[in-house]
Design a protein around this nucleic acid. Structure first.
Lengths: 191, 191, 191, 191
DNA sequence: CATGAATGAGCCTTCATTCAT
DNA sequence: GATGAATGAAGGCTCATTCAT
């Protein structure tokens, strides 16, 4: 095995990091707080992640990986473009609502200089694949007046905005989710 | 009086902070680097900003203020809703393209726990006023199926996305600016 | 367990602090000088004492504790009041002569605003007990024209004066010690 | 004139220093706080006292000078030894009660390494003269079984103790003053 | 391999002192 | 001479990382 140490402990550390980052912010999250939250010794953290930066980058990739996994589950391969995009939209919004800490942390990491270009590219590649899938093997050509990555970014931006509003007003979650998608979908069709 | 505390020096520090934060990231920006970049002694920084946190918060407010000012200049009070929104869109995108460091820093600050709720509210109030203006005194009712703050956030999110794409591909700046607005506007105006 | 936090190191730091404070004065004693004198890393000092103030207060209490311990050793429970007071007098003077650094430091700490009321009260309680003992279970009523705490303070004040004179003129140590006590005792016993 | 600057301002600074030192302690008394309390500019302090250390030493000497002056006023040149000592005792205790800030500060300065040997000697000389006076031209030989400086120090120590008790219990000021002196006086007479 | 004590570079901040106005 | 802004050395403290146990 590549990693002789306990996979559980590794995950405990990643989860603890997520919690601590979400609660206290990247700037106020010493590794000692993370290891404590994870229930491991301070030194142990460094046998799973060589440096704090490595931990941060692996956390970034891991969260993105989870997101992608969820957005892919139950993907309507046979559906039309709208159905596909709506699936992505809904799964993303739902993920964000179900994982507020993760979403908060991803938000911080996205703008942080601690996450390397390599990590970003690796994750973007995963999502590019997803968005590719959203269009592949389709005869419909709606939305193609915009470049695909732009559409993907717009989906991401609007979905994040949507999630933020739902978090402020959870009672209308379903309404916002639908309204947000409509705004996105209608925006796609050039008139 | 001895030398009066110069507004210039204060601005020099804010500008230096912007540069250093943009280049090295909030996490790797010691106050010593900022004062050096500003050409003042380390101690001087603290005579203009009591603590680093205060500096960060004042920088946040200052950048937001500049943004708001630019978006308000030449605002088409007499125009229709689309003209008003397009004005906001264009001025914001242009500001972002003209001030990449500022935009990078605002991005970092927005997700940072170092910026207080007070600073955020103060700045949001300014923009709320702007968005209010975008709709006020109009008889058109397009877009009212979405709550105004949601529209504002959507504009912001899509405009940022647009700016990012222009930065990657400056040759098509005008195209992206127009396309982005169209996407936004169409998203709003359909049922 | 890894290396357990050693009591030795803690004492090394307290002793180093005593030496440095005595030599350079509270005002000119950076923690770096203390840790260096103790032979530990600068950061280690703070793992044994959370702040410099805590170190100072614990040092204060520790010295007082040592003093009290010595004054209690061999206490003549069966002796008359004079014997008891003389025991306190002699042990205190001897302690002061044997521990000049400690005495110098206690002098500085006593007048310092860095020592909290809590530390003072805790230490005073210890000595109150001792002075109580000096009078308890006795049928003699000499000296009771003065309140006990006043007598205790007077003993302390005169004993310190005595120590200072012995330090200036060590050849007559025994004479001063006896003379000082006589002055104290006569002061008490006459009306 | 040796000092072309305003004597008033100099005194204002010394008084301010006394107040600030008494309230906040030597350790927490920046020169900026002193100049502010004195109502002068930060820089001005340094045109009256070349350095902070100089200020501290001059303050020490000044307070001692005031004390000596008061103890000398109305000195019973014709009285017997007891009357003379009682005069010193009473004036000292009264001075301490009337000038709590000064007394607090002198207490701090006495144990501080910031006060130079030169300042101490200069002040001690003044008091030596006073104590000399207490015995001069007298035929009485009480108390001469103790060395004069020892007697002086004992007086000082007991008077300070007395003052402290009066401060804790001002209602019995007169009692403590008398009791303290009795203790001192009785202590002097070897039996 | 786990533990957590030990390390020391680095950071924010204070403050005595200087000096331009 | 008075002012107070400017300076920068120095200090307390944190925390990522190492390493003895």
């Amino acid at each position: 095995m590549a990693r002789p140490k306990s996979e559980d402990k590794r995950n405990a550390i990643l989860n603890a990091a997520t919690r601590v980052f979400a609660e206290r912010g990247l700037a106020h999250a010493p590794t000692s707080a993370i290891s404590k939250a994870a229930g491991v010794a301070e030194g142990s953290l460094f046998s799973y992640f060589r440096t704090k930066d490595v931990l941060i980058n692996e956390l970034y990739c891991e969260i993105k990986r989870q997101m992608a996994e969820i957005m892919l589950a139950g993907f309507p391969d046979k559906g039309d473009v709208r159905a596909r995009l709506e699936h992505l939209w809904n799964t993303y919004v739902d993920w964000g609502l179900a994982n507020p800490a993760q979403r908060k942390v991803i938000g911080q990491l996205q703008t942080s200089t601690l996450v390397t270009e390599v990590s970003r590219l690796e994750s973007e590649r995963r999502f590019a694949a997803i968005h590719e899938l959203a269009h592949d093997a389709t005869t419909e050509h709606i939305a193609l007046s915009y470049p695909k990555p732009f559409v993907a970014a717009a989906l991401n931006a609007l979905a994040n905005t949507t999630i933020e509003f739902v978090e402020l007003d959870p009672a209308h979650a379903a309404d916002y989710r639908r309204a947000g998608f409509l705004m996105f979908w209608n925006g796609l069709s050039k008139d």
